[in-house]
């Protein structure tokens, strides 16, 4: 398994995800956003951070970077693309994933551990996680409030694209367990063909007990 991690100006979780991928023996190359080609990769990761200082809209300018043409091609050819946090925002801005991520409903940057339910384990990113498994994974974002039109939500449900939903420790998906106002408590979605995943929580921060938890490991193990 070979991975490329795209580095944008303002990315700050790129090296964290590199460490996570390497922990699972995934051969990882860092790729600067101005590159016009990708190294041969099975997986492309768009890491978390604040690409372009979140100017205009989070992820909007990164989505127009030169290398993104190659990332879009890679996704259209069936290659895996994984966007974490700012990477998820970039994926919605490119149109590889539907919807958009708005300011958190309470207008606060939220940095804490949350619980998410794995509502779809039929993707390349979740296939080794038991169905409906509750994971404790940190979030750290100001714009994680998932929004999509009624038609898009209908389509997400129809194609079983909702992969992770915020829940409480018992797995109840409710208003109280929704940290940011996301529609349907959505924490992560895939595209229709399930080779592109975007999620706001940071699994790369949850791969070692030293970091406070290992619940993020299942995603990296699924990709092997």
């Amino acid at each position: 398994m070979k991975a490329s991690v795209i580095v944008f100006p303002g990315s700050n979780c790129d090296r964290d995800v590199q460490v996570a991928l390497q922990k699972f023996q995934i051969d990882t190359t860092m790729v600067w956003h101005q590159e016009t080609s990708l190294p041969k990769s099975d997986l492309v990761v768009l890491p978390g951070g604040f690409s372009y200082g979140d100017y205009l809209r989070c992820g909007s300018m990164a989505s127009k970077s030169k290398v993104m043409n190659e990332v879009i091609k890679h996704a259209k050819d069936g290659g895996y693309v994984f966007g974490i946090c700012n990477g998820f925002q970039i994926l919605t801005e490119t149109g590889l994933l539907p919807g958009a991520l708005l300011r958190n409903s309470k207008l606060k940057f939220i940095c804490k551990n949350v619980f998410i339910k794995t509502t779809n384990n039929q993707t390349a990113f979740t296939k080794k996680i038991p169905e409906n498994k509750i994971l404790s994974i940190p979030i750290a974002h100001n714009e994680g409030n998932y929004f999509a039109s009624k038609e898009e939500i209908q389509s997400l449900k129809e194609y079983n694209q909702i992969v992770f939903q915020y829940c409480d420790e018992e797995g109840n998906i409710s208003g109280e367990s929704n940290p940011n106002g996301s529609f349907l408590n959505i924490a992560g979605i895939s595209n229709q063909t399930k080779n592109v995943l975007g999620m706001m929580p940071h699994p790369e921060r949850s791969i070692d007990q030293l970091l406070g938890g290992v619940d993020g490991q299942g995603i990296f193990q699924s990709l092997l």
């Binding site: 205009l56 809209r57 127009k64 919605t92 898009e152």
Partner: peptide, 9 residues
């Protein structure tokens, strides 16, 4: 259409 506005929102 391509950058200044995100027509989803």
């Amino acid at each position: 259409k391509k950058l200044l506005a995100n027509l989803t929102i």
